[in-house]
Design a protein around this nucleic acid. Structure first.
Lengths: 116, 116
DNA sequence: TAGTTTCATCGCTGTTCGACGATTACCGAT
DNA sequence: ATCGGTAATCGTCGAACAGCGATGAAACTA
């Protein structure tokens, strides 16, 4: 066993305290990237997470777990997928992780879809 | 073996001869539908197909096969997925099938994504 | 009628996903 | 140093996906 460092891998891209609700200009991504982003949204739970993060200001993992009614590990997995697709971003806040929508990534997705 | 009717199941929704390039108004779909549409786009080949259908006017299955460089059966499968998601539509034209973008379905997808 | 073209479907294989419980790591407090 | 809370990761299992060759159904053609 490699005993790789667990947890603490949220790659804090930007702050979630003051979520950026503006829609930045974004270029339409290429086919592969667009497909990757679409795949991140290709599950009702993950679409739901995006909405929850957009409506709430709390957006801590535990809140999302309660909101979705899925197992904590399952939600954490969905959050990871969305995070790696660049659609949300996480920020470590003491013992918990605060998530919010990644406006830049989401804008890129929108640009790519609208350009179809 | 049930010997189900093979082929001839393209459900001609509308004509592909005169592709409707206007963007109809569409309501944002619910989470499940949006996830389903996103899943249909969650593969580079299928994103590619949408583009090919949008650029070309030919849009027969064989053309898409040549364009993608995948096996005919594989492409046919991708076309089925896009068709069942309501993003494209097929029309039987003699021995071949003519495909084109389903403007209504695509508009619904765009509306759903932009509303996020 | 027989032969050809076109394309959807079937059967198969290997890969990836989705969900969960269990585990582990990190943090803050006792 | 230990404990409690929080959340990411691991391991597992069944289901779904992605690709392809082979088969078969239509619809033309000769």
């Amino acid at each position: 066993m490699t005993t790789t460092t667990q947890r603490r891998k949220v790659t804090p891209t930007a702050s979630c305290i003051e979520p950026d609700r503006s829609t930045p200009v974004a270029e339409a991504p290429d086919d592969d990237t667009l497909a990757l982003m679409a795949k991140a949204l290709a599950h009702p739970a993950r679409v739901r997470i995006i909405r929850v993060l957009d409506e709430r200001t709390t957006c801590v993992t535990g809140d999302v777990v309660l909101e979705l009614g899925l197992a904590q590990s399952t939600v954490s997995e969905h959050l990871r997928i969305l995070r790696e697709a660049g659609l949300i971003q996480g920020e470590i806040e003491g013992p918990r992780t605060r998530y919010c929508v990644n406006a830049t990534g989401l804008a890129a997705l929108k640009a790519g879809i609208v350009a179809l």
